[in-house]
Amino acid sequence: MSASLATASTVEQALAQLAAGARPVAGGTDLVVGARQGKAPLPERLVAIHRLAELSEIRESSTEVALGALVSHRRCSESGTVRDRLTALADACAIVGSIATRTTGTLGGNLMNASPAMETGGPLLCFGASVTLRSAAGSRSLGIDELLAGPGRTTAASDELLEAVSVPLPPAGTGSCYARLEYRRQMEIAIAGATAVVTLANGEVTDARIAMTALSPAIGRAGEAEAALIGSGGEPDAIRRAAQALAAAASPISDVRASASYRRAMAVVIGRRAIEAALARARGEWVPVPASTALHGGVR
């Protein structure tokens, strides 16, 4: 049982609490459920940050979108700019947990929980997003790849608060997709997920960023998969080679959700589907958000 809970009304108050040993809570969808299930006890001291309006904003410029740490998955997935320009992130945010989870849970919480199965990690990594961490001593900026350190671990210090996630807008001609294997339509967790961000110029893939989710201890990009696609015209053969390279880079485990061999086979299938949908979007074709639901038995 938590010994104390303070509600911060300014970022400074929250930082002071963190410096004194408190842990932050926003939506609570990971923290509270985890404590109830006995995964991790509630911290002795909590600071509630859900009233910090400045962390709840979505700020857009011509070059980037800055998503406050408290932006809910639902708001993120419903943002026009995110849907149009950062579609893979909208795909991901639209399938986190249930409607209740998406309305309550925050992007910042999802990131700092650092689950290898988190939906938003792959898209943010591929878009080259960075985070602003702030402590009483000042602020610093880190790439997503520098933030995520392993299952349940980040490189943030205990007195640092995630303020915002900045996502650079990709160039014109870019399409993206996050897809995952889903056993059911809601309340799902990634068993195998893939992100693809591809840029087309004159029909040629000029840039490709491909990452896997729940297929390795941390969400990571697959350089060989990207290389297989860059320079191609996005033909089925190139897509197949890229998906196979993604699966080859995976280090799947066997657990109650799936065997390693099934996960690896699904890496090929889900990877291919994510790349296909990203290419389709890059060409201006319509693929619904979230893509995962439509992809099962649908798009090839």
């Binding site: 249930s98 056993y183 059911r184 339509r185 109650v256």
Partner: peptide, 29 residues
Amino acid sequence: ALTEGMALDGHGHQRNPHLLDYKLQTAAD
């Protein structure tokens, strides 16, 4: 038919005694 089953470890323990991995059908399904 599709998603609900006890996953046993062969030593008398259930591996999925929670709603994330004992998958009920949702309203959306």
